[in-house]
């Protein structure tokens, strides 16, 4: 496959993941599923950034032993990886807080289904 097509397919994969997440949040009635969809959405962003960092014929961004003068061409871009480490941590934290909220909701209302919940809130 030529590089252009491969590139577009990769971007489309990230976009599809993003859309799966968005769809889940908009359409699924169960709150836990919404939360899982939210995680997929965040993973999509992470995948997208990692794609941006890749270079053909380059190695991971760790200076090889004996390489006195590293050249940018030989290593992949470390910046997106760093940024996504942050994004992963944010994703974990948000999930933790969301789970805590869900436990509170379940203790109080005994259900995590959105329509039942709306019914009970009235």
């Amino acid at each position: 496959m030529e590089a252009e097509t491969l590139s577009v397919v990769n971007y489309w994969l990230a976009a599809s993941l993003f859309l799966i997440g968005l769809y889940g949040i908009l359409a699924r009635p169960h709150l836990v599923r919404k939360l899982m969809a939210m995680n997929i959405l965040q993973v999509a962003v992470i995948v997208f950034f990692i794609i941006l960092g890749y270079k053909s014929d380059a190695t991971p961004p760790i200076v090889r032993q004996g390489d006195e003068t590293p050249i940018a061409r030989n290593y992949i871009n470390p910046l997106p990886h760093t940024l996504m480490l942050t994004a992963i941590v944010v994703s974990v934290s948000t999930t933790g807080v969301a789970l805590a909220l869900l436990i509170r909701i379940h203790r109080r209302f005994g259900t995590l289904d959105e329509s039942e919940l709306i019914e009970k809130l009235k």
């Binding site: 890749y54 270079k55 053909s56 050249i71």
Partner: peptide
């Protein structure tokens, strides 16, 4: 818009893409 914009992004794995040539070389070198 996501699928539309994908065609105009820099080609993946291109070592001459802006992301690989502007800020990151200093980090690597």
């Amino acid at each position: 818009i996501l699928f539309y914009a994908a065609r105009d992004l820099p080609t993946m794995a291109d070592p001459n893409a802006p992301a690989s040539t502007h800020v990151s070389p200093r980090y690597i070198e």
